[in-house]
């Protein structure tokens, strides 16, 4: 009860500050729209898809997972600014739940990601994408779990390294192989065997496959439950680890 209240308190504050910054809101909406509009003409020939709609079924889930990963991974920068301002220290002398300090922030990231995802999906509908609502909601759950995990990990790392100069290269080094080996923008079906072998060890690759299966209306596919389970477990681990950093971070 106290935990839920504390989380809500932090979440509310974070959302309020987010909405106060019109630039951020604009970028958050504008960016995905650009991806969709500027990539759209290239999709059908590049993916060798029979129709525009088929191309979108492959591309849109990848784009959404991409946004979830990156939206989360770079949230740590905001936390370092808060750390520097003394806001975190001030929170940590109160009896507020340490898990709430993390979760309130991560949930803001999840919500802002889901808003982006909804905008993209609606736009894609104009381009003839068709998804069942149930499948779509499950795909959103997957995205929420990914964003939860990446933002929590980013916060935890931020508390450990405490400086932007260390966080930026670290997050880039993590993000790049993860991105390239997940088949996010182009599916790995055409990749040579060794590359697919490596990709099997990339949890985001499973998440992308699962999300694609959902967009394809293939709810029964093993990829769906596999992707969901892997991301759920990783999100739980990420949250647990990051909350511990909030509990014991030094300065």
């Amino acid at each position: 009860m106290k935990f839920a209240r504390d989380t809500w308190l932090i979440f509310q504050r974070q959302i309020q500050l987010l909405l106060r910054n019109p630039v951020w809101v604009f970028v958050g909406v504008f960016q995905p729209v650009m991806y969709l509009l500027l990539f759209a003409p290239l999709l059908k020939p590049a993916l060798n898809a029979p129709t525009q709609a088929a191309a979108y079924k492959i591309f849109v889930p990848g784009l959404l997972v991409l946004l979830a990963i990156f939206g989360g991974l770079f949230q740590g920068f905001g936390l370092i600014a808060e750390l520097r301002a003394g806001v975190i220290e001030r929170s940590r002398v109160t009896p507020i739940s340490r898990l709430a300090l993390l979760l309130g922030r991560s949930l803001r990231d999840v919500v802002s990601l889901l808003v982006q995802a909804v905008i993209i999906t609606l736009l894609a509908l104009i381009f003839d994408l068709r998804v069942f609502i149930g499948d779509l909601l499950l795909a959103y759950l997957m995205l929420a779990l990914i964003a939860l995990m990446t933002s929590a990990v980013s916060y935890g790392v931020a508390l450990k390294v405490k400086s932007e100069d260390a966080l930026a290269p670290l997050m880039n080094t993590v993000a790049q192989p993860v991105l390239l080996l997940s088949g996010i923008l182009l599916p790995l079906t055409f990749a040579p065997g060794w590359l697919q072998g490596i990709a099997n060890w990339n949890p985001f690759s499973w998440a992308v496959d699962g999300t694609r299966a959902l967009f394809a209306g293939d709810l029964g596919s093993d990829k769906v439950w596999q992707g969901l389970s892997i991301t759920a477990v990783l999100a739980a681990l990420g949250v647990y680890w990051a909350a511990r950093q909030f509990a014991r971070s030094v300065r």
Binding site: L9, R13, L17, G86, E89, R90
Partner: peptide, 25 residues
Amino acid sequence: YVPQGGSTWDESTAREELVLHARMY
């Protein structure tokens, strides 16, 4: 506890900070 290097956030107001802080208790 009032830390040495400050504890307020640039983008929020004094009233918001005070209400939030009280609610954290």
